[in-house]
């Protein structure tokens, strides 16, 4: 009924733990940007709507990246929004490249950093060429781990590098999020005959890390379980196992189980209802509206008379990395 730890915290810690000030500050910024709204509806109404949208998780839509990643709740909301908006991509069985997924992310968050998408793609593709195609659910599950546990993974990468080079793990200094060099793989010269590091040692270090980490990290029991399945493993081996583990998805709580990722009957119904209303589209209800703004390599499915109008414009506006597809579709 009541969790007493919350009541025992000092005021400032309670507020920080719940990110109350983050949202209050943001509410004030939003209010200052929309001064005309408050003269019409009143300040209390403005704040009511703001905090309601935070509760519902719609507050991160089209916001700047620094805000989208500011709190665990914002990250989970963003993952959920991404899934809900582009689920039909997966349902149609489209395979997309890393750059294309990045375009989708940028539709929701215009300044979403490419680096993060690339890291997520690496979890799926490992050593394969980075322009390989990925399925929606593979990408989504890898992306959620990379995005949600970003800072944690940075620290894990640093620990992994130290273990590889034979340093004592207990003297590891956790880097700040600004250091990004430790992703480099060991050159074949310095890597030992066996690939990766010893799982039990790695596990010990990660347990320590979970204990003192101030950002969100996966449940320690889960990390342990993932690591107990192998004798040795590589950094990306660990990430793959973590992202594919059912428990990770459950602990994070933003998405449904993997089997249900494509399943959302209420949303499907809503989509069909909307599509019926679009004139000239009545016979092609299987085509989804979201895919229309994608640079797509497959020919348009069904009759979609609106496609040529939307397509070039959207691509110009939202993607800067996928020129080849744009060229293709414009010719």
């Amino acid at each position: 009924m009541l969790s007493p730890e919350r009541l025992a915290l000092p005021d400032y810690e309670y507020l920080a733990q719940q990110h109350v000030l983050t949202y209050m500050e943001d509410a004030v910024c939003q209010l200052l940007e929309n001064k005309e709204d408050i003269s019409q509806y009143g300040i209390a109404r403005f704040f009511t709507e703001y905090f309601n949208s935070v509760c519902q998780g719609t507050h991160i839509l089209f916001r700047e990246f620094s805000f989208v990643q500011a709190t665990p709740h914002n990250r989970a909301s963003f993952l959920r929004a991404f899934w809900r908006c582009f689920r039909t991509v997966g349902k149609n069985g489209d395979l997309l490249t890393m750059k294309e997924y990045h375009c989708l992310l940028q539709l929701l968050c215009p300044d979403f950093p490419l680096e993060l998408t690339r890291k997520a793609a690496r979890i799926v593709l490992l050593d394969d060429a980075m322009d390989c195609l990925m399925s929606f659910s593979d990408f989504l599950l890898a992306f959620q781990v990379q995005f949600y546990y970003s800072e944690f993974l940075e620290s894990v990468a640093a620990i992994y590098q130290d273990l590889l080079s034979g340093k004592n793990p207990n003297t590891v200094v956790v880097p700040t999020s600004s250091s990004g060099q430790h992703r480099q793989r060991p050159t074949s010269g310095e890597a030992s005959m066996l690939e990766g590091v010893e799982a039990s040692l790695f596990c010990q270090c990660l347990e320590n890390l979970c204990d003192r980490h101030k950002y969100s990290c996966p449940p320690p029991a889960l990390v342990k379980e993932v690591l107990s399945k192998a004798q040795r493993l590589t950094f990306y081996g660990f990430l793959v196992a973590l992202s594919k583990h059912q428990g990770t998805n459950q602990a994070l709580g933003a998405l449904p189980d993997k089997g249900d990722l494509m399943h959302d009957p209420a949303m499907d119904e809503e989509l069909e209802r909307l599509l019926v209303q679009v004139p000239g589209l009545a016979n092609s209800v299987t085509a989804s509206p979201e895919t229309s703004c994608l640079p797509s390599r497959t020919p348009p499915r069904g009759a979609s008379p609106w496609r040529p109008h939307h397509h070039p414009h959207k691509v110009d506006a939202e993607s800067d990395g996928s020129t080849e597809e744009t060229d293709e579709s414009e010719t």
């Binding site: 719940q18 300040i43 704040f47 009511t48």
Partner: peptide, 29 residues
């Protein structure tokens, strides 16, 4: 308004302060 709201949050220490604030402002409105 925010000062009063923040004081209420600190006083009540709700488990879900954001939902609490939404209700608080709704009532205020």
């Amino acid at each position: 308004m925010l000062r009063a709201a923040l004081l209420k949050v600190l006083e009540a220490r709700p488990e879900e302060p954001i939902a609490f604030l939404a209700r608080y402002f709704e009532n205020l409105g």
